[in-house]
Simulated scan of single mutants.
Amino acid sequence: MLQNYKYASVNCLNQQAIADTPSFLFLWVGDGVGLEQGRQCLKKWGFRRCEDVCWVKTNKKNASSGLRHDSRTLLQHSKEHCLMGIKGTVRRSTDGHVIHANIDTDIIIAEEPTDGSTKKPDDMYRIIEHFALGKRRLELFGEDHNIRPGWLTLGKDLSYSNFNKEAYNRSFADNDGKVWLGGGGRNPPPGAPHLIVTTPEIEGLRPKSPPPKN
């Protein structure tokens, strides 16, 4: 997930160097012109936009209105968008060990920070963690409040880190110590060490795709 979206700096990142196939990217783009710039970034990095999560800001705790008056817009904006991009192809019928589909919605209704912080709703993490079953989770442009178990957070404003190299590498290794290095363009098989293992109980709760029409 990319925080603090700035087109000039984000556009020059070489995502291809670290993104396996398949992989997913979640990019906060604000609203307005950021939507188009975000789509351009996804395309440049080899991702195609597949979803758009919208954060509707409630501002219940903020005495002053969070609506932004911008001379470039026709309406007052009270929302932000997070574009979801996919690299490769993942099918619900065959790749249920890679993704969980239809668990969350594409709308987050949450309070906007009152102190001018760029902090995003924690619900976004839960959506990502519910959907993508890969353990390799990287957040760029993170701050201290973004540090989260199971994620590698990078950012120039971090004052500390929860990163442990040995523990990080062990989480991607199988019982023989073999680490998943990438699928070479192929989707990982069930039981690949870099995927979160599900249980029969979880599978019983998984929303199923509708049966094909005759």
Rank of each mutant, 00 (worst) to 15 (best):
N59L: 02
L140Y: 07
M124N: 04
K6I: 09
R68A: 13
E166K: 15
D95T: 07
A132D: 14
N102F: 15
G155V: 02
P207T: 02
L138Y: 15
H100G: 11
F131Q: 12
L35V: 11
Y168D: 14
G66I: 05
A101R: 03
K178T: 05
E129C: 05
K165N: 08
A17I: 00
Q37N: 12
T118Q: 11
S64R: 06
M124I: 14
N175Q: 03
S23M: 00
F172R: 04
Q40M: 09
N146H: 12
G46A: 13
F172W: 08
V197F: 07
Q37C: 03
V53S: 01
N102A: 12
E143P: 01
E51A: 12
P211L: 13
E203A: 06
M1R: 13
P113E: 01
T58I: 03
G177D: 11
H194P: 01
T114D: 12
I196T: 09
E203R: 09
V56P: 00
G88T: 02
N14Y: 00
R136N: 02
H100L: 13
C54S: 04
W55H: 05
W55K: 10
H145T: 06
W55R: 11
I202R: 14
N214M: 12
I107D: 11
Y5E: 08
G134K: 02
N59H: 07
V56E: 14
H97C: 03
G183F: 07
P207G: 11
E111T: 04
P210C: 09
E51N: 09
R91I: 06
L195Y: 12
A8E: 15
N11G: 00
P188L: 13
T199K: 05
P188V: 04
G88R: 06
E111Q: 11
N214H: 11
K165W: 06
D174S: 07
K135I: 00
T118F: 03
D174R: 06
G85V: 03
G184D: 04
T89W: 03
N146D: 15
R48E: 12
R48C: 10
N102L: 14
N214K: 13
P22C: 10
I196D: 04
S161T: 15
R206G: 03
R126D: 14
E80N: 07
T198R: 03
D115K: 02
K57P: 10
M84C: 15
M1C: 13
T58D: 06
R137I: 05
V53N: 00
Q40S: 13
L13N: 01
L158G: 06
L27S: 04
I128M: 15
R126E: 12
L35P: 01
A101C: 08
K44P: 03
E139N: 14
T105F: 00
K44C: 05
T198W: 05
G191L: 09
I127Y: 04
R91Q: 13
I109C: 15
Y168L: 06
P210M: 06
R137L: 08
S9F: 08
A19K: 00
W180K: 06
P211K: 15
V98F: 14
L42Y: 08
D20W: 00
E51F: 10
D70T: 15
G183V: 03
D157E: 14
N169K: 07
N162P: 01
G182T: 06
L133H: 04
N4C: 09
N102T: 07
W55Y: 13
W28A: 14
P113Y: 02
E201S: 14
G32Q: 00
E139D: 09
G34M: 05
I103W: 07
R68H: 10
V33G: 02
W180D: 11
C50Q: 12
D20G: 02
